[in-house]
Structures are given as C-alpha cells and as structure tokens.
C-alpha cells in the first residue's frame, strides 16, 4: 500500500475493525431496502434454476460471480430453450453492458480510493446500489466514502447468493411461493429505484424518452437491443433540455460540486 494515498490513515486500522466500523455499518443499513428487495427475486431465480435443471453449485456460483438479476434470468430461459453457450454469453454481455455506463457514473466519485476497494466495489455494483448512491449524493461529483459504499454492496450480494440457495432448496418443498406476485418483484424494485432517482423535470423527461424508445424497440422485435440503444440516446433529451432552460453555470455547478462528505 502506498504511504502517500490520502486514505492511508484508514489502512493503518485492522481489516476487521474497518469492516465492523460505523461507516461500514451505515452503508449496510442504507443497503437494507436493496438487501430485502433482492431476496424474493433471488428466491425466484433459485427456484427457476432447479426447474431448468441447473446443478445447485452452478446456480449459487452464478449468483455470486455474475450478480446481475436480469442477465441471470435471461441465461436461465436460454438454457431452458436449448440455446448455445455462445448465444447465452452474447445475450448476457448485451444485458450487462449497461454496467459500463453505471461504472462510468461513479468513476469520479471513487477516484481517490485504494485500488483494492475500487475493484471490490466495482465487482459488486448493481443498478440499485448505483441509484441509491446517486440519489443520496444528488448526482454530484462529491467523493464517496469507501467503507460506506462497500457496506452498501455487501448486504445485497449476501442476500442475493443466500436467497438463490434458499430458493433452490425450497423449489420442490414450497410450490405455493410462486403465486405470491414474485414475478413482479424485480419490476417493483426497479420502479421503486427509478421513482427515487427522478429528482427533476429533466430526469423525468429522460425516463419517459427511454421508456418510449425501449418499448418501440421491443415491439419491433429487438428486445435484446432495447436497453442498449435507449440508454445512450435518451439522456440526450435531458442534456438538450437542460442546456436551453438552465444557465451553463448552473449545469457546471450541478456537475462539479466536489464536497467531502462529513464524518459523523
């Protein structure tokens, strides 16, 4: 570890102390809605994996290493319909390439972290964690506290992997669980995150544009491309509208506020 890193004071403390520290716990607490929200979705995934005929270790390891709900569901349905390994990997890549855009969105906020923490956070980042962070910090370039962010992504991954195992185990024992609106859980989670994310009329316009574009692409039979095409185009609506209705200074301020988050 380089001694001149700005965060070197924290690396002096023991690992266990940092993981149990108040900042980490604050992140864990903030992850609670995501952690709880992932549980029924991963439960449904675990059950589906058993139905499709995945070995238990494959279902659990997939949740731990890919950790992306939409892509895992896509993979499951493609395995069930007998598609090739290459086709599945391509579909997973397309669905998850949105993580590139999300990671771009936090790169400035975590630039000052030690590399090990950046990698850990990067591997465990999801749409929901991203949205919670951006909602809490007002989409600014404020520096994120590393241990709080690591706490925020630890709860969800444990819940995701644990519930995958639980769902796989329960698949044959509790068939009635399937009828509790679990298929709406993922949609409800994403809707909840979106409604917390939309903070002004520009964000609202972008969401409407993306919804229309993506629906149109799906209607045209291009459902795999729907997110990939809409994600880069729809933000242009917000960019253009913000440019004509707000001063350049206000935009720059929105972009460039760098505030060190205060210690509690």
């Amino acid at each position: 570890m380089k001694a001149h890193l700005p965060t070197s004071h924290s690396s002096v403390r023991s690992h266990a102390e940092i993981l149990g520290g108040p900042t980490f716990r604050k992140g864990l607490l903030r992850s609670l809605p995501i952690t709880v929200g992932y549980f029924p979705i991963a439960l449904a995934f675990g059950m589906g994996a058993r139905e499709v005929g995945l070995p238990g270790w494959v279902a659990i390891l997939m949740s731990a290493t890919t950790f992306g709900g939409a892509s895992q569901m896509v993979a499951l349905s493609m395995i069930a319909s007998g598609q090739s390994l290459a086709a599945i990997l391509f579909a997973v890549f397309v669905v998850n390439s949105r993580f590139f855009l999300l990671a771009m969105g936090v790169v400035e906020n975590i630039a000052h972290w030690p590399m090990a923490r950046k990698l850990t956070f990067g591997l465990l980042m999801t749409d929901e964690a991203f949205a919670v962070l951006k909602a809490a910090h007002g989409n600014s370039r404020r520096r994120f506290r590393s241990m709080e962010c690591l706490g925020l992504v630890t709860g969800p991954v444990l819940s995701w992997v644990g519930a995958t195992a639980a769902g796989y185990w329960a698949a044959e024992r509790l068939p009635a669980v399937k009828e509790l609106g679990l298929d709406f859980a993922l949609v409800a989670l994403l809707l909840g995150v979106l409604s917390c994310q939309v903070s002004n009329r520009f964000q609202f316009a972008v969401a409407v544009a993306a919804a229309l574009l993506s629906t149109a692409w799906t209607l045209a039979g291009q459902s795999t491309l729907a997110i990939l095409i809409s994600a880069p185009i729809a933000p242009l609506v917000g960019v253009a509208w913000e440019r004509v209705s707000v001063s350049r200074r206000a935009i720059a301020k929105q972009n460039e506020i760098v505030v060190e988050v205060l210690h509690e």
């Binding site: 999300l102 809707l191 972008v206």
Partner: peptide, 16 residues
C-alpha cells in the same frame, strides 16, 4: 452532464 441522466434512462428502458 450526460452521465447524470444515464441511470434514469437505463432503469426506465429496462422496466417499460
């Protein structure tokens, strides 16, 4: 400025 709008776009595109 563009990136600030990306999450709203991705989420709405995934849900709609």
């Amino acid at each position: 400025q563009f990136v600030r709008f990306v999450p709203s776009a991705v989420l709405a595109a995934a849900i709609a």
